[in-house]
Structures are given as C-alpha cells and as structure tokens.
Design a protein around this nucleic acid. Sequence first.
DNA 1: CTGAAAGCGCTTACAG
DNA 2: CTGAAAGCGCTTACAG
Lengths: 344, 344
Amino acid sequence: MKRKKPTIHEVAARAGVGLGTVSRVLNNHPAVRPETRVRVLRAIEELGYTPNPHARRIAGGRSYTVSVLLPFVATEFYRRLIEGVEGVLLEKRYDLALFPILSQARLKRYLESTTLAYLTDGLILASYDLTEHFEGGRLPTDRPVVLVDAKSPRYDSVYLDNHLGGRLAGEYLARFPGAIFAIKVEEEPDKAFRHTVFSERMAGFLEALAAQGRPFPKEHLFVTRLSPEGGRLALRYFLEKASPPLNVFAGADQVALGVLEEAERLGLTPGKEVRVLGFDGHPFAEEVGLSTIAQPVEAMGARAAQLLLERMEGYKGPPREVRFEPLLIERASTATPPSAPYVP
Amino acid sequence: MKRKKPTIHEVAARAGVGLGTVSRVLNNHPAVRPETRVRVLRAIEELGYTPNPHARRIAGGRSYTVSVLLPFVATEFYRRLIEGVEGVLLEKRYDLALFPILSQARLKRYLESTTLAYLTDGLILASYDLTEHFEGGRLPTDRPVVLVDAKSPRYDSVYLDNHLGGRLAGEYLARFPGAIFAIKVEEEPDKAFRHTVFSERMAGFLEALAAQGRPFPKEHLFVTRLSPEGGRLALRYFLEKASPPLNVFAGADQVALGVLEEAERLGLTPGKEVRVLGFDGHPFAEEVGLSTIAQPVEAMGARAAQLLLERMEGYKGPPREVRFEPLLIERASTATPPSAPYVP
DNA sequence: CTGAAAGCGCTTACAG
DNA sequence: CTGAAAGCGCTTACAG
C-alpha cells in the first residue's frame, strides 16, 4: 500500500534528462540551463521526490543533516535555541538531528564513527565546556563544529554576555527604594555540562549593586533549583527578612514566575509591594507582565547555524566569537522606576 | 592527520577473503566456516573497522540504528528508560538515536522520509498517546514501532500499572495514624505528550483510601509542577491543615524529595512526625531513605527494546501488551507501619 | 562455505 | 550546459 519512494532515476526519466543533471539541480550546481532546471524541479515536485540522505552521504556528498548536541535538560532556553537553529537550517534544506547528552560517556559515543551523529555534516554543541572534558579542547571529529551558549578558543562560538546582564539588573533595581533580594539558580556540578551562566549573572548583579553603594547582605540571597516553586519559596523567605516594598532579581524567568505566583497568592501587588525582575526574556514573561533581562536566544541559535553553514561550505578562517548582549525589558512586574538611583 | 576510516575492502584484503565473506560475518550469516570467521574478526579488530551505517542502509540491509522518540522533558524517568533500552540494543550492536519531541509538528517531521529518524530500522516511542494525534492511531512509517509508558491497540506496548501503584500507596498509608495528604503532579495539557500517569496514580490512591474507610478531604491535596520545591511548598501547606504526625503520598520521588528537605529544615523527623511515600523508585530515593512505589523503568525500557528487536527480525504477530507492576519499597521515610489498617 | 558480480541511490569528474 | 560512466561502502542472490 505504501508506494516505494521515487528515486533520482524516475525524476530523470520524467524530466527527460540524465540523472547527473538531476543531481546537479539538487546540489545547486550553476551549470544547468534555467529551462532544464525548471523541468527537473517540476518532475521532482510531481513525484514528491526527496533525496535519500544515506545515498548522498555514501556518494561522497553531504547528507544535509546537522547534529545539535545539547544537555539533557528540557528548558525553554533550549526550545528557543533549537527554534533559532532550525529556522536557518530548514531554509537551506538541511535537516537537524537533536542529540541530548545524558552523560559524558554518551557525548563521546556520539562522536564515534559508528554513530549516527558522526555521519552528519556538522555539529552544533550547546552549553558545553569543551576544555573541561577533551584534551586540547578539541573534539574527536573532523566535521565542522560551532559552539553556542559557550566559548572556546578552537571553535566558532556564540554566547550571551551574562555578566553584563547581571549588571543591567543590578543597576536597574538599585533605582528603587526598598530592600533588594536575589535568587540564584543552582548549578549542578556533577552533570556533564558545566553551566556557569547563573553565577555570571549573579556576579554582574552584585558588582553593579556595589558600584551603586547599595548594600546586599548575604541573607538576601536565596538559592534554588530551576523551577517556579523555587521562586515561591524564595519570596516567602524574603518576606521573613524585610517588609514590602521588596525588589527581587530572579536569575531566571521561570523562577521569577514563581515569585509572581506567590505574590498574587499573598495579595501583594507586583510592581509595587513586590518588584520582580527576571532573566531570559522567554515568551511567557510577556504574558505575565514580567520585567526581564532578555536574551535573544533564537537569534543566537540562528547565528550559530549560519556560522556552521559557512564552515560546511568550506570557510577556513580562524575561530570566530560572536557575543550577544542582553536587553532590559520593563513591564508591570517592576512598573516604572525612578530615573536616578535610590539613595537611602 | 586523521586516518581515513577502513572499509570492508581493507578488511577483506587483510583477512585474505572476498568482501562478500566479510559482509557475511558482519551480518552473522551462518554460512561461514568458523576459522574464516575468526580470521575476519581478527582483521576487523586489528583495523578498528566499523561498518558504515549509511552504506548498509543504502545496500538494502539494516542501518543498525534505532530511533527513540521521547518527550522534551529531561527527567530521571527518561534517563532510566533510555538506559534500559540502550542496554539491550548495544548488546545486539545497534546504535540508538534519541529524538526529543518538542512539538507535534516535530514528531510528524521525524516520521517524514527526508528525516534521519525515518531512515532508522525501528522506532521506540515513549509516553505518547497515538490515538490522540494520528488517525487510526497509526504512525506514518513502515518501520516497526514499539510504545513504552503508553498503550495502543495497534503496536506492541510496555507500560506500568500506575493505578495499581496508587492503590498500593493508599493501602499502605492507611495503616498509619494521623492525617493523610497527597501531592499530585500537574499534567501540562498543551504539550504534545499527554501524560496521565499522575492522574492514574492519584485515582488508585483515593480508591484505596475510600476502600479502607479513610477520609480524604479535598484540601488535603496539593497540586504542583514536578520539582522538589513543589514538595517543600506542599509540606508547609499541609502543616497549616493538621499537626504531626502527617502521612504524605507524593506522586513522584522528585516531589517527595522536597518534602523530606523541608521536613529536615523544620526539624521534623521523617518516618515519625512526617511520613513520606514517593513514587518511581529512582536511585536517589535510596540515598535519602525515601519509601516509594518503585517502577522498574530500566526493565521496561529493556523489554521494549526486545520487542522491537523481534519485530525487526521479522516477527509478524499481533500487537503485544506488556504490563509491569510497581512494588512498594519501605525505607526510613515511613519507618515500619502497623500491620493492620488504622481505625480512628 | 566462498568469490565475483550486480545493485542500492546518489555525486562527481570526464568527455563532449 | 549535459550525458554516460565510475565510484562511494555496503548486501545479497548467483554460481560454484
């Protein structure tokens, strides 16, 4: 019942050309007469033909698929990142295969020659600190590699300046009266991925506070795992330390969401009694009126894909480093701040 | 610097046989003399040869890789499930490729003929309710398919009896004096995967309680997302409703962990003032002394892999349904219960 | 039991 | 610009 997939031969026959010509239009080879190209394209369309990636790979060409290796943590961040990567890849008719890395061992296996990931045309590696795990910070693959949400001296990399984001947050919250609190997301040290973004954000935040002469007692920091419930717990904890108005920097939107939820539950008005500033700029932040330090995750993913595309086309230059800057977005959860820093 | 991968030709030359013979030992064809087989195996070993899956697939054989499609939620459950699947697949020299399903659209793309997942020898689909999304509950692929953590009339499936697990939990907790509480994990309805396991657990739990004549007021239920912090919030909430001893059924180990954390923080002794029963039997539960309704996740994964292997070898029988039963494991978090149900 | 040949679906020089 | 041929790394009948 399932018709066999058409091959390049059928396309050639239907278009009345040799199969070399079909291959040429498939690979965008310039040496094809426009009319011929159209004929072939039509035949492809009519037959619903799609080239077999295995055959392409075997014949020495590309398989037109890219591997994206990412940590086994399913957050909005990675969803957006993938969306960005996918956008530019699909446009270039590349397929992408996601490889969640559950463990160090698994990453190594992915890179082995037996493996599907290995047979792909290029790799995008997210949030992974290479220098930690591979000698010379060099991956055991001969495919082009691009890092995203990470840096490396050996590969193209695309990342956000998280420290700057933290600073922006600090400078902003310092303009409000009331005690300042912060929630830091815990980084799990035993995981294959070393994620330091949360520490960087907090470091920038504290630095900015200090620069404004705004004190930040140790007890004003709450550490939790990445979850809204963590934000809820944090707010309860903060309310034991000081009375409203409170200014809370949550290291991630997801946690900030919990702060908002709990504020509402306690009858505290966001932007007034409890000011909350998130980090990430995820779509849901807009829905709930959350002020946030936004990172252009999709754009970062797209940029990474472009860099990889260039490498796959043969670009040989030295490693490139693309730094993205976060942006403060004001919404109801902080309302409008005074224009100058608050002086107690 | 990177030596080219050896091919079947080099193996044949080194072993002094034809390449057809090499292929035969690769595919475990019986018609090979033992001595020849050994010679070939040695050559393979010495050369570090690994067959190219693309070439195998193209030549009409198998690619020896299996796709595992799973929701984009990175929990311990899926980690264990993959471990189980991987164990039996690797033994049979199969590679597995994980495909996290971020959206409905993506699942459909995975199944398309352009896609890597499609070119694989078989599919394992986790936690996905087919009937919801595909007409006739039939996937658009001609590869063998096995479901795990889900049921279907059309495909082999492997699942846990979550309702029974809930019942076990109810019967067990009903043996203790003190108020009974429960935490239910929220199921996100908008996700591609419809997860009803938490509802099933809770249904079984309430049923058992009713059967024991043990009342369960509505306010004794706390709903949260899957996170330890959810458990911490829940315990605080419960303590407003009743004084110790409390008996808490947490719908998932991860949530139960938070209950334990918060109990400790509040100076309440687990197994005495606060009794906690989890669900899942994850490895960390043992470390923290958490009583739990354990599910043999690795075994479920392994079984699914076996069923798929049989299908890939050509088994044509009707869909098989494998039901696993959960097991109560007692640890310090509940201590030893009275042998008979508690009668107020 | 084993070798040589044909073929899988493609790409890429090679000649026109 | 285009066709026919060789070749990619394998598997699978086909003959011995």
